[in-house]
Design a protein around this nucleic acid. Structure first.
Lengths: 145, 145
DNA sequence: GTAATACCTAAACCTGACTTTATGTCAAGA
DNA sequence: TCTTGACATAAAGTCAGGTTTAGGTATTAC
């Protein structure tokens, strides 16, 4: 069993955030001893899931719904599975978008590197978008697709 | 030259957002004809860069700083290049974090699939974390690293 | 005994990125 | 002429996800 302060250190989260999550219903099984929260392994696993679902783009109230399903028992396995499937797809799509963003950023890095080398953007822009080195052309196309 | 309504349609952005960006200084070269904004190719390219930098995690006021550098001329090529290098690194790190999130989500998909199959989480948890199929073990390790 | 800590609550506050509202201008079409 | 639609502004409102504040309790350290 852990105090809120210990969990705060373990997860590098402010105490206020843990209390906020609790208030929002994200720890449905949280125990108390004379008013004081006692985090068990169950709450730590909940916190891992919370961080995962948050990174996947879920809002707090949707995570709360998930926790409510957990309380409901085995009848909600399908809902829970469906949620993770949906988040998996969302993250896969996000990674594709990020890859395009990354290609744009790489292109811009090359662009300014070259601008510095030739001394001005103007001479550089004359090359665009038809006279680029092939690997830069690939970045340019990916970013402008 | 395009009207704000045309650009709104081209980029699938509300007119209010474009005006907000303009107010925040994100279109330093924007022209007007009797008070009405006229978007040129320069503004469209600015908008592409805005979307890229936003996805990379930059705030509006930092994007505004970038636009200010563009106005300052070739002397700020190094600052602009450094910005893109930093964003590139940030996005690469974000993609690594997302990959871990994805592994956790895939693990949870397998977990609930199996829970549905065997009828209860409890029998499943007895297998964890030591008796997992190898490819699931890999996801579990990646997600809990 | 008293001072420092760690915990508690409720409620107000904050931030970023927009969005909405209220009000007004202007040109084109019926 | 009059109304419709696209444009404009300033200022207020919204929302999520916390954070801060104000006031209190309980335990430990000196």
């Amino acid at each position: 069993m852990y105090s809120i302060g210990q969990v705060s250190e373990m997860f590098h989260l402010p105490v206020s955030t843990l209390r906020y999550y609790d208030k929002e219903g994200l720890f449905p099984y949280m125990e108390r001893r004379s008013g004081i929260r006692r985090f068990s392994e169950r709450e730590l696993e909940a916190l891992r899931v919370i961080e995962c679902l948050k990174k996947s783009g879920l809002e707090i109230k949707e995570i709360k719904q998930f926790m409510a399903w957990c309380v409901e028992g085995p009848a909600t396995y399908p809902e829970r599975k469906a949620l993770f499937e949906t988040r998996k797809q969302a993250v896969e799509e996000e990674m594709l978008r990020l890859q395009k963003t990354l290609d744009m950023l790489k292109f811009k890095c090359w662009y300014y590197e070259t601008a510095i080398r030739v001394g001005s953007e103007d001479r550089l822009n004359e090359m665009l978008p038809d006279h680029l080195p092939p690997e830069i052309q690939k970045l340019y196309d990916s970013a402008h697709a």
